[in-house]
Design a protein around this nucleic acid. Sequence first.
DNA 1: AAATGTTCCAACCGCGTCTTG
DNA 2: GCAAGACGCGGTTGGAACATT
Length: 266
Amino acid sequence: MGRAPCCDKANVKKGPWSPDEDALLRSYVEQHGTGGNWITLPQKIGTVGLKRCGKSCRLRWLNYLRPDIKHGGFSEEEDNLICSLYISIGSRWSIIAAHLPGRTDNDIKNYWNTKLKKKLFGKQRTDRRQCRSIGTAKQESDRFDDGGLGIVIDGAGQNDFWTSTSIRELHGEVGERSSSDGVSYQSPLVAPSSPLPQPLREDSASLASSSLPGVSTDLDELFQFDLVKLEGLDFFNGFEGVKNSNEVSPLVCPSVVQAHNELLQW
DNA sequence: AAATGTTCCAACCGCGTCTTG
DNA sequence: GCAAGACGCGGTTGGAACATT
């Protein structure tokens, strides 16, 4: 038995919001607030209600209509902060957004996927192209966007060290420090004894030695990232020196240090 | 000028977590 | 303690705008 739908799908409008709908939602929320219940909010709006799913209203308000939303291009400082935090904690967009006033998680996510990712790893792609003469540009691009990036981020320690639960706990969203479960979460930002988190190294080694056709070669190549991948980071102010260091922590950017310290406070 | 490909972003979807009764 | 409902998050998609051929 599946979850009950949050609204009557047959009677809600989908797709882009019209200016009228925006105005209705905005004026209602500004006057009455959300009332703590988005699901029922559409029926309360206007004389005939707003034919939108409550979730859709919430999203529209949070991502577009809120008065404190900052639209427009991202600054260099914001770029650095996003990249630093992404590499530190992965795709925890809401946490990243919390450190960028006026920006929404959706905004940041889109910005990362469309621009920052390319900006960050484009350089490496160029570097690697010089080393590899086979394959089309498109194939090369796909390989990097998928496998390469994911592994880089894993390599920064996210998956094995920062479970979603630990992040949430560290961020105080459950209201108390995380230690009751007896698990000690190691921050990827605190220099471990080796440039790579140990679990990843083991995983990569075992994966790379797998007998799957074609996997070994690719993984051998991809897991050279300790230095190779990080070289792409050096154009970010916050990452100077990372490639030469045995310390994993790239935290030179003050705002990232602050964000990181906040996490460690919990 | 038309066709095709690419980029970008708003919005949707599904699922895990939290809250409430 | 449990179940149902609501919330919040991250991944993905659709389509408009723009670029290239």
